[in-house]
Design a protein around this nucleic acid. Structure first.
Length: 697
DNA sequence: GAGTTTGAAACT
DNA sequence: CAGTTTCAAACTC
């Protein structure tokens, strides 16, 4: 375990005696230092490079809420996704053991990033961090770069990691060793792996990136202008060098960086590419191909292991499939961890997922991921099966593809066309007829796009808004669920009950909201808070007493679940609660069409149950359930509006039709209506109920 | 793979 | 703004 210290000692024994004896103390010291120094310098290089990608300038200001999250890019999605994944691994004890150190280190890493590329001392620490967080991408690179660093970093019992358990360290170390053995031969591959891992950990644009990658790999014709880095062209050019041969460079970093750029700016740029027509094509054509080729080299197909079904490239929602994607790559890591902890729960093949980015990864992980996933708000076996089935069929069929349109009459120049709507050119695999959405017709495309945008400025904006971005900052990453994002405009489903992909909310993996005009919403990701209407209806139908009893009962249930959560030793309620029990608990409520307001809003946020004072007291609720809703929202709304630029626009969007509130005749409902009828104001307040997702509310 | 269903987009 | 038509994806068989 003390290898780093060992080495110096051995060197003392061997090298120094050969030099002059009288100087031996000094030389010993110096010679001891020098090898370490070299290692240091290398790691410093890594750090420098790695740091360089921590603070890329915001090249594009995207309409979606992003900026503040970017600064914590790594921390946010690393920790969240990993935590999610680990959670999904059924392990309870294991989960906790693993998650803690990992997140700690990740936070550390993040904090390092925050300090920016500054001191060498900071840089010097990086290897340590890489070690523990190296369960992930960085780790896979390292074998390539230098085994020394890995050894040094992986062996010593770092203090921070030690806080949790030796098992964690051992697990990681074992993993590292295994990786080292297997990976060393193929550095390029590893780089690709790292890239891949990093990319797919992204909570946001994984779909988009997938599409990009797929496009690039399948055909260079697809317009991938966004990848071209306008501000940092050099980086993109560095990638190839690294990806191919350069072993001395900080491999850990550059791929990440490139991917990072790709991911951050690239996709957005890509979506915005229509706005900078002139420049694009030439540079991009070359640049891009090189970048894309290099990024994708050797792994193209694997990128789309799970076929993309998302709405838009820049769709933000972390739908189940996104998580799946993440898991596919995270899986091996966690699998290894778990293996090292709990024996052989996870088959060894899972390791291959990272090492073999190839098609082989398609089946097994995809098979297993859903099992581990247990998508939080779903709890639907049938849905899961369905998705699995779908995935399989897609794999077998179209293969690992992302959006490919099939337009026949629109010439791919209308939003009907998914490619066009996503801001990308159609490519070969598209089955479109008479397609104008091609670089050749760039001007036409631009003009059309402009026209559409003039009609609806948000036409090309992401359809799904991740409203929880700000929430994440607050700290409780666990609270980030797909339900925390919302469809921009809301759906208008009439017959599908928001249970099929006809529904854009469902397709985006988000719950319906007050923006939705859907009827009979059964969206498994979250029913529209139109349930407020349902609430009112139910309130009308029920006499007050019954209603309050129900609320009390619900509150009681919530309390019970809270207790269970806080006191794991106690027996669980009748329904065994998965890691997402807080979500599952309120599922039954949601399944009833009458949803008491307080309960609903308590339940909407995954963390709400954890936070005792997140809602009002039971007595309060019993007295004024509806007012409670209003109050909560009143506090919440401004934040949402602030955090979501689109939301601002949305408020004035002509598209946001609204379901008229019921027009009950009873006096009681009258008051309610008066409150709502105050008009617009109240209605607006009731829009953002998601904020209740915010653990800090 | 063809036909149907569905809801968004476009149109009036 | 509301109603209708067009369109292509999703779905079913």
């Amino acid at each position: 375990m003390d290898k780093p210290q060992k080495n110096p000692t051995s060197q003392i024994g061997t090298s120094t005696p050969k030099s002059k004896f009288e100087d031996s103390p000094v030389f010993n010291y110096i010679s001891n230092l020098s090898p370490i120094e070299s290692v240091k310098s290398i790691s410093t290089a890594q750090t420098f490079s790695s740091l360089s990608f921590t603070s890329p300038p915001p090249v594009f200001t995207s309409p979606h809420v992003n900026s503040h999250r970017e600064s914590r890019f790594l921390r946010c999605h690393y920790s969240v996704d990993r935590a999610k994944h680990l959670e999904s691994l059924d392990g309870s004890a294991i989960k906790e053991e693993v998650v803690v150190p990992v997140i700690e280190d990740l936070n550390k890493e993040a904090s390092l990033e925050d300090e920016e590329e500054t001191s060498v001392e900071t840089a010097y620490e990086l290897p340590q961090i890489l070690k523990f967080s190296s369960q992930t991408p960085e780790d896979s690179d390292s074998p390539c770069t230098e085994d020394v660093v890995i050894e040094a970093s992986s062996d010593p019992p770092r203090g921070d990691g030690g806080s949790s358990s030796e098992d964690v360290k051992m697990g990681v170390e074992n993993m590292l060793v295994v990786r080292e053995e297997k990976d060393t031969p193929d550095c390029g591959r590893l780089i690709s792996d790292a890239t891949e891992l990093l990319v797919f950990r992204s909570p946001n644009d994984s779909e988009a990136f997938r599409c990009l990658v797929d496009k690039i790999s399948s055909s260079e014709r697809r317009f991938c202008a966004g990848v071209k880095s306008t501000k940092r062209p050099k980086i993109t050019e560095d990638v190839p060098a690294n990806g191919s041969s350069n072993e001395n460079e900080p491999l850990t970093v550059l791929p990440n960086e490139s991917v990072f750029n790709l991911h951050r700016g690239g996709m957005r740029r890509r979506c915005l590419d229509f706005e900078m027509p002139g420049k694009r094509k030439k540079d991009i054509a070359d640049d891009h191909q090189s970048v894309c080729d290099n990024n994708v080299a050797g792994e193209s197909s694997s990128r789309c292991v799970v076929p993309g079904i998302g709405l838009h490239l820049n769709a933000v929602a972390m739908s189940a499939k996104d998580i799946n994607i993440n898991l596919i790559h995270d899986y091996s890591i966690s699998g290894e961890i778990q293996k090292s902890f709990s024996g052989s729960t996870i088959p060894i093949h899972s390791q291959n997922t990272v090492q073999e980015t190839s098609d082989q990864a398609e089946n097994e992980p995809v098979e297993e991921i859903p099992k581990a996933l247990e998508f939080p708000s779903l709890n639907l076996g049938s849905l899961k099966k369905k998705m699995q089935k779908k995935r399989k069929s897609e794999q077998a069929g179209e293969g690992e593809s992302c959006k490919r349109c099939n337009c026949k009459k629109s010439k791919c120049l209308k939003l009907y066309c998914e490619c066009f709507a996503a801001g990308v050119y159609c490519i070969e695999p598209c089955s479109c007829i008479d397609c104008f959405n091609k670089p050749i017709h760039e001007e036409t495309v631009l003009a059309t796009r402009k026209q559409i945008e003039s009609r609806n400025p948000l036409a090309f904006a992401p359809k799904v808004i991740r409203s929880a971005d700000s929430v994440m900052e607050a700290g409780d990453d666990a609270s980030k669920t797909p339900a925390s994002a919302r469809h921009k405009r809301g759906c208008n489903c009439k017959k599908s009950n928001c249970l099929k992909k006809y529904c854009e909310c469902y397709q985006g993996g988000v719950g319906c909201s007050m923006n939705c005009r859907c009827e009979g919403c059964q969206n498994v990701f979250g029913r529209k808070e139109g349930s407020l209407l349902v609430i009112m209806e139910s309130k009308l139908e029920e006499d007050q007493e019954t209603y309050e009893k129900r609320i009390a009962k619900i509150q009681h249930n919530i309390e019970v679940s809270k207790e269970v959560e806080q006191n794991p030793s106690s027996d669980q309620p009748s329904t065994p609660l998965p890691p997402y029990r807080h979500l599952v608990v309120h599922q039954p409520f949601l399944s009833k069409n009458r949803l008491p307001p307080t309960q609903f809003f308590l339940g909407t946020g995954s963390s709400s149950f954890r936070k005792p004072d997140s809602g009002l007291t039971q007595s309060q609720n019993e007295k004024k359930p509806l007012e409670t809703v209003a109050e909560d929202k009143t506090e919440i709304m401004p934040e949402i509006l602030l955090n979501s630029p689109i939301a601002n626009i949305k408020a004035i969007s002509p598209n946001s039709k609204r379901v008229s509130p019921p027009q009950p005749g009873s006096s009681e409902s009258g008051s309610i209506l008066r409150r709502r009828g105050n008009g617009r104001k109240l209605i607006l307040r009731s829009i953002p109920a998601f904020p209740s997702l915010n653990p800090n509310q």
